[in-house]
Amino acid sequence: MPDFMQRRRIARMLDRKAEQFADRSSPEKGWIAAMRLALGMSAEHVAQRKGVSRNAVYQAERSEKEGSISLKQMENLAAAMGGTFVYAIVPDAPIEQLKYRRALERARAMALRQSGFADWSDDEKQDWIDDAAAQQLHDMPSDFWETT
């Protein structure tokens, strides 16, 4: 497991990359067809460049739309059309925010197991939860992401 500094560098890199993918919508006909049509390339031309049949190109376009195409196929087709296939996992929020949400979830669950917690004032409860969440973020225990 990377140390804190490595995790933070990776998180910042992912956050910067996520900004580039803010618009994650795909073309209506898929990326293969969109690139091919934009280039004015027939399926036959792509097939010749890739060394497959025209029907294989059409099948790949259908598979892409269905979500069953392989990453390798996308990579090869992109290269055949003079492009590069990019694969990414884009976080739904900044990495630190995702970690903080999880730390709060864990802190709230821990609070319910805290003796007499229900009798504490709202301020005491919130302080305890905030402290527990901060401790979770600091320690990042090995079970941090386990589901309960």
Rank of each mutant, 00 (worst) to 15 (best):
Q20C: 13
P27L: 02
G67P: 03
E61M: 11
R16Y: 07
L112Q: 15
T147E: 14
I32S: 06
K17S: 09
G116K: 09
A107F: 15
N55I: 13
R24T: 03
K65F: 11
L14M: 13
D15C: 06
F144Y: 05
A111S: 13
Y58P: 02
D3F: 12
A33M: 14
A132W: 10
R62K: 13
A134Y: 09
Q48C: 02
V46M: 08
N55C: 01
S25T: 11
R9I: 13
K125N: 01
F4T: 08
Q136P: 00
E146K: 04
A118K: 14
A47L: 05
T147K: 04
A132C: 09
F144C: 00
T148Y: 13
G82M: 06
P2C: 01
R8S: 13
V46E: 03
D3A: 09
H45L: 10
L137P: 02
A103D: 12
H138R: 15
H45T: 11
K99Y: 15
Y58D: 02
D131E: 10
Y58R: 08
N76I: 11
D92C: 14
A103V: 12
L98A: 08
M1S: 14
I129T: 01
L77I: 07
I10M: 10
Q73Y: 07
S142M: 04
A33T: 13
R54C: 01
L137I: 06
G82H: 05
P141F: 03
E96M: 15
R108C: 10
W145R: 03
R9M: 10
F117W: 15
D143G: 02
L77T: 10
E146M: 03
L98G: 04
S142R: 09
A38S: 14
S53Q: 10
E146G: 00
E105M: 10
V46F: 11
D123F: 06
M74Y: 05
A11I: 01
M81F: 05
E66H: 13
S70P: 03
P141D: 02
M5E: 11
L37R: 12
S53R: 08
P91V: 13
Q114M: 15
G30Q: 07
